[in-house]
């Protein structure tokens, strides 16, 4: 770490130092990014635009980017169809929220607990666990479906929420991500000081480590949420009343070409939730940074 090489004096004096930044540089960077960003966001704009097009406009060729006569008809039709659903749509929504909330919470909490021990404790077996986590990231998940299924049926979890929720708690990505951040951002001296003041390991984890690595778990929430939200539970959930919302909506739009407008509305509705989570978390990350990191010049 180069940072530690700097003299204590310069760190002490550092409070009112202005960083070397050129305004021209800022403008150039912003312009380049804005052009690329516009290009990146195109399909999102197109998808949202589609949801507000009357059916006749959706099939115009070549396709129009934005609706010429915006309408809420698609959403209205969708709500009518939702009302006709055999299992009330609120039940699907409840299923989805339960799966996403429990899955994400377990992923973040169990993941970061383990990550804290792996980053800051020393115990026999630590190296082996670190290696196992790293290596398991590189094994193709597709062939694991069959062993997965066998384990689930052995545990009697087929056709229960647990079949989706619990594996999310063992997702390797989260631990790996959290460990990197804890190892890097939490200084050992800080933990020693906390322990000296009588903090238990649990208190160290909850009051010292977690607040410091807030950007990390906010990011993990985005990733975990997005993944669980998209899960249709196809392999493990059979009972209609256990299925998540994306499944129910995909059934509604399976009704052929005539439902194309409704399908566009569904896509937007399904996208809106992860996007909201993304925006809330991402702006939180930036805010954390405003107090402890670099502020905009």
């Amino acid at each position: 770490m180069t940072g530690k090489g700097f003299s204590a004096m310069s760190i002490l004096r550092a409070h009112k130092v202005k960083l070397y930044r050129s305004t021209t540089g800022d403008i150039v960077i912003f312009s380049i990014l804005a052009v690329i960003a516009a290009f990146m966001a195109m399909p999102m704009v197109y998808t949202i635009g589609n949801a507000f097009k009357p059916l006749s406009e959706i099939f115009i060729f070549p396709p129009q980017f934005l609706p010429r006569h915006p309408t809420m008809d698609n959403f209205y039709d969708l709500f009518v169809l939702m009302g006709q659903s055999w299992v009330p749509i609120s039940r699907y929504l409840f299923n989805s929220l339960l799966i996403v909330a429990l899955g994400t919470a377990g992923n973040v909490i169990f993941g970061s607990l383990c990550a804290y021990a792996l980053a800051k404790h020393n115990f026999p077996g630590k190296r082996a666990i670190n290696q196992a986590i790293l290596l398991s990231l590189m094994f193709a998940g597709a062939v694991l479906l069959i062993p997965h299924y066998l384990i689930m049926s052995y545990l009697g979890w087929i056709n229960t929420y647990w079949a989706i929720i619990v594996p999310a708690w063992g997702a390797t990505l989260g631990v790996f991500l959290m460990r990197n951040f804890i190892e890097h951002m939490v200084h050992d001296t800080l933990l020693e000081a906390a322990r000296m003041d009588g903090a238990s390991e649990w208190q160290c984890y909850w009051h010292v480590v977690m607040p410091i690595v807030k950007p990390a778990w906010l990011t993990l929430i985005i990733l975990s949420f997005q993944q669980l939200w998209a899960d249709q539970g196809a392999l493990f959930l059979y009972a209609e009343e256990l299925k998540p919302l994306p499944y129910a909506l995909s059934q509604i739009i399976g009704g052929g070409v005539g439902r194309a407008g409704v399908a566009a509305a569904v896509t937007v509705l399904l996208m809106a939730v992860p996007i909201t989570v993304f925006v809330i978390n991402q702006s939180q990350i930036v805010e954390t940074m405003g107090t402890s990191g670099i502020t905009g010049e």
Binding site: T2, A14, P215, T288, S292
Partner: peptide, 30 residues
Amino acid sequence: GVSFLTFIAGLQGIDRVYYEAGAIDGIRNR
């Protein structure tokens, strides 16, 4: 995707102090 978001979070995690100390110790540009 994932790497991009992680890098963003990682960059937020670097304490401003290091950059300020760097500026004093002679770093002149990005």
